[in-house]
């Protein structure tokens, strides 16, 4: 190994290191491909919704020759956040992106309003009632109106606990089919 300080890398070299295996750097097609890779990364706690449908991927862009993915946590203390970042990094690396950079951004704060229609449908089919209404219109002491049972569709349901098995869910019970179910809280 040569001793002494390494010479600074030229911009062209940085570009080359940062490019993916095909040797292309930062084309719009790459960004599009990155989004489609992300659409296959599932939330480890609710494995039927991917990170894009969940609304936690805020941006995908090129920066200094690296693919940069901006994610926002669902809850301040969500223990899955770091794990999700690792999953995203792995998926992108496997797809040929060289050293993708993951960045966390708190602002604007994540809201369940960002869960896509496809994501909501997947939640319901999986047995988790999707968030009802808009987070913007929630008032402090008002409880969500009608939560439909994901099993039988009845709105004759009751809340068992405001907090469920993970930070994002509340526990409900259907008074018609009697099944307990998770409700993805509106925040």
């Amino acid at each position: 190994m040569p001793s002494g300080e390494l010479p600074p890398l030229s911009a062209a070299v940085i570009e080359l290191i940062g490019s993916d295996r095909q040797g292309r750097a930062g084309s719009p097609e790459d960004i599009e491909r990155a989004w489609s890779v992300l659409a296959d990364v599932m939330d480890p706690e609710v494995p039927v919704i991917n990170v894009v449908d969940l609304g936690i991927v805020r941006d995908v862009r090129w920066s200094a020759g690296h693919l940069q993915v901006i994610v926002t946590p669902t809850y301040s203390g969500c223990p899955a956040t770091e794990f999700i970042e690792t999953l995203i990094e792995e998926a992108l690396t496997t797809a040929g992106f060289h050293q993708p950079v993951l960045k966390q951004q708190l602002d604007p704060a994540w809201t369940t309003d960002w869960i896509t229609a496809a994501g909501r449908e997947n939640l319901r089919a999986y047995g988790v009632a999707p968030p009802v209404g808009s987070a913007n219109k929630l008032s402090l002491l008002a409880t969500a109106s009608e939560i439909a049972c994901p099993q039988c569709g009845s709105v004759h349901t009751e809340r068992v606990s405001e907090f469920g098995s993970t930070a994002c869910k509340a526990l409900y019970r259907c008074l018609d089919c009697l099944e307990p179910f998770d409700y993805f809280k509106c925040i």
Binding site: Y75, S76, G77, C78, F163, S165, A167, L171
Partner: peptide, 20 residues
């Protein structure tokens, strides 16, 4: 059990906020 989950969930939120 429901109360236990609620107490831990609230604690978790607070630890996340504390970290921020």
């Amino acid at each position: 059990l429901e109360e236990e989950m609620a107490l831990m969930n609230v604690g978790l939120d607070l630890f996340g906020q504390a970290r921020n």
